[in-house]
Design a protein around this nucleic acid. Structure first.
Lengths: 194, 194, 194, 194
DNA sequence: AATGAATGAGCCTTCATTCAT
DNA sequence: GATGAATGAAGGCTCATTCAT
């Protein structure tokens, strides 16, 4: 039984090193070293450093977008959708931690290329549509700005890549759940408002 | 009459190019070109590329931190402080746009060095103290997690550097004001909750 | 069957070019050219130009010192030791000609670093001890200044790197033998002195 | 009364720094700094770094050669000439210490250019003629090799630039006198030889 | 005379990429 | 698949030199 190609190992090592040092600052040699091979050997699996970045970054980006797409079409109230969006975003973050971190740092919102610009736009559009649903349905206030709100939520979630550490007390999903709560309900206590 | 040093020009040009291409991807030649000089001439003003990054990044970081410090000590309710924090954060963003963008992309939350780690920690600490005041005083819900909430707000605001464009319909401060409103009051309409 | 590393070739080429042009004036490109490779390729063997200098210079320095050490401990009259020191010094010079020349020009007696200062001191100390033996045993005159005499002999021998050319009538060892004779016996004929 | 041009100061500062760091390793800025001026200002006195080296090196070289020439023609026995050559060589060394050190390190015996090659040759020729006189007159042994002996003496004297320090117990001339004694009479005591 | 700024050539070093073995 | 060596194109930085003020 032939062992599976080590391509996955290569991409994973790359994700880890890219997250640690940043894409430009990491040398292929660093990645090779993490794998216990020589840098030249990497070219048995990839054809360029850039391609390696894309290999790191496409899976989490795809996951993020596809889970958002699914939720967008679900038959749920906007509040519920938002909460689930946050949780699934965080779930992907947790599962593909370094991959997502690299995606956020190097690609998301950077105008890296048309491919990724389009992905950014789609993500924002889907999320703001959900928010708009909530507004239209009266769940959210009429003055809600869907796009801005989407950006704000995305920012909160993406920023997690800069401080979240695996193995902490709260899982990424629990943290995202709390963020979603604040985002939906605000910090201000309702009792004071009635 | 001594000519004014062009150091400011150099730092400004660097901020612009760093924002556009990212620190590692910009060559000193790019910066020199933006200034109409040779790359070697830059060394009349700086002693290394790294130092140039720091020169770009220190002013906005200082501004951000000092304005937060001031507000933290002000005699205002936490709600008001939060709103003002967001607005001043955005004010700095607008005033020093490329500088702040470079700071957020290259430094903030990156563990770049002890100097900056400490700055990150201070910023988070000050903001979570404000949120904690709000909780203690009963303005914010008792289950509020001050640190997490601080992170969420910081993420929303810092993420602006990836999408905000100067010259749009709404100023950065207006956008930040809306973000603060959501953060404080939530998206969900109160009437729907009674 | 592993190819033999070309490190030796690199160091040898460096020795030749350093001798010809001097360390500071030679560009790595010169060395690469002498090897028929690109300058970048040199870094497969060395990690810096400075290290290359040390690689050139350490072998002859070690040889010089170790052969002197051996002779110092031999059971021979001081006159004989001196003669053999000169001959072995010249033997090393001949065998490692450009290496020794580089060592003498760039390192010896230059206070380049503590490592080399110590080597200088040891060489002088050993040689002056030999001379002191000769004085104590009555072979050499009582007013002999061992350190100064050591310096004088070392100077004569090291200066050979500036004029000795391989392939001449007399070998380096023969020349050194004559130098030693003069050093020991003087130019003045003994018969004239009776 | 116009103060004398600072050209002398410039050359002196250059001599000191060249001696300390070596010609290639010193930057004009180092020299300027030693003078308390900016490097650009040096060009009010010199027209190139190379020229500055020559300005440092020509006076001592000239002195060395002219004092040797004078002695060569004097009506003295070869033994006396040799001793005086050594003493005057050392006298120049002491008077122009850093200048001579630079000359010896950077120029003498280096084949720097035709001008200096010729100077080297003349120096050796004059000294070996003196030695040859001694041989012819029977003062020195018949097997004396004048050129080689000249080289040996020159080496001993020039090597002083690597270890002599001004302000020591013995003056350079006293040291040279001892060196000359050894060179003439040898280390071996005559009494043992009768 | 002096200076600060600018120049431009050059050098060391890095690194993605290639390739023969 | 793996490797060590080689490549070549940069890129950061240095520094002798120039020049307007």
């Amino acid at each position: 039984m032939p062992r599976p190609s080590r391509l996955n190992d290569v991409v994973e090592a790359a994700a880890n090193v890219f997250k640690e040092r940043g894409y430009h600052a990491t040398r292929l040699e660093d990645i090779a070293e993490a794998l216990g091979m020589q840098k030249g050997s990497l070219y048995n699996y990839i054809s360029s450093k850039e391609e390696l970045l894309l290999a790191v970054v496409r899976p989490p980006a795809g996951r993020l977008l596809s889970s958002l797409s699914e939720l967008a079409e679900a038959d749920l109230p906007a509040t519920e959708k938002i909460r689930l969006v946050a949780k699934s975003h965080a779930g992907v973050l947790e599962e593909y931690f370094p991959y997502v971190a690299v995606y956020v740092q190097e690609i998301a919102g950077q105008g890296h290329s048309e491919e990724w610009l389009e992905m950014d736009r789609r993500y924002v559009r889907l999320l703001s549509q959900i928010i708009d649903e909530g507004r239209t349905s009266g769940l959210f206030g009429p003055s809600t700005n869907p796009t801005l709100s989407a950006m704000a939520l995305i920012g909160s979630l993406n920023w997690m890549t800069r401080w979240y550490e695996q193995g902490g007390q709260l899982s990424a999903e629990e943290l995202a759940d709390q963020i979603a709560s604040t985002f939906l309900g605000g910090l201000i206590t309702r009792t004071g408002r009635r």
